[in-house]
């Protein structure tokens, strides 16, 4: 049998599973035994080297900081739960009305019927297949200001995708669902988005950039340094895909 590979020797040293023949060979082979000893010496030296000079860590301060952030997240969840309850109540009323309108001689049915019957003078609206299939979106272009660009999006549903593509231009483009509103000032754009996904074309080099979604930082870029505090879920040919975090 030829000598064991360096991978097998290191795996044997580290107690990882290796082929039984490899183990027997190393035990009986002077060359491989020596390689194992050398690998063991190297491991001990690296362990010592990496452990030396390790600075003390202030766990208590970090604990306080994380606890405060967790409390902040929990506090932010409470109003959202109330809003959710209101939405549930609205849905209940709606379903109740629909249910009542289904009953024969129901006053709700009569009321709805009076208002929904098309006037003979006004032709009914026609929805074409292409209208239904074509997603309608709205977009805005905004130039990077002298101090960079801050994009702040609100109302983006949790777990929505935020697709980012990089461009060499100095203008950013934000595209979101139809009905989204934008307000633009120099170096800043704020948007109330009516639904996901959101698509952004962002300058790859011009100015520092910051993207906040629902009050949380999802991306910042300063020069070559890109920070994604919430991480990304995919990379694309010309950018990356972020996901609006759940709270």
């Amino acid at each position: 049998m030829s000598h064991s590979t360096e991978g097998a020797i290191v795996a044997l040293r580290d107690g990882a599973l290796i082929d039984a023949d490899d183990r027997l060979h190393v035990e009986g082979c002077g060359v491989c035994s020596e390689a194992l000893e050398e690998a063991t010496r190297r491991a001990e030296w690296i362990q010592r080297t990496l452990s030396e000079g390790a600075r003390a860590v202030d766990t208590d301060a970090a604990k306080r900081a994380v606890r405060e952030r967790l409390d902040g997240i929990r506090a932010a969840e409470r109003p959202r739960r109330r809003r959710f309850s209101l939405a549930q109540a609205a849905a209940l009323v709606l379903f109740g009305a629909v249910g009542a309108s289904a009953l024969p001689n129901s006053p709700v049915r009569t009321w709805v019927g009076e208002r929904m019957t098309p006037s003979p003078d006004v032709p009914a609206a026609v929805t074409t297949a292409s209208d239904a299939a074509e997603p309608i979106e709205t977009s805005v272009d905004v130039a990077v200001g002298p101090a960079g660009l801050v994009i702040s999006l609100r109302g983006v549903p949790e777990s929505s995708r935020v697709e980012v593509a990089w461009t060499n231009e100095t203008t950013a483009r934000i595209t979101a669902a139809d009905g989204s509103s934008f307000s633009i000032a120099e170096g800043r754009v704020e948007s109330v988005v009516t639904g996901g996904p959101v698509r952004l074309v962002l300058p790859s080099t011009a100015g520092p950039l910051r993207l906040d979604v629902n009050g949380r930082r999802l991306l910042s870029r300063n020069g070559d340094e890109l920070e994604l505090p919430e991480g990304s879920i995919a990379e694309t040919a010309d950018g990356l895909v972020l996901q609006v975090p759940q709270y």
Binding site: T5, E6, G7, A39
Partner: peptide
């Protein structure tokens, strides 16, 4: 393949 890659990384670090 971890053993082989690790061994090389250790040697490079050394």
């Amino acid at each position: 393949s971890v053993g082989t890659l690790l061994s090389r990384a250790e040697k490079r670090f050394e």
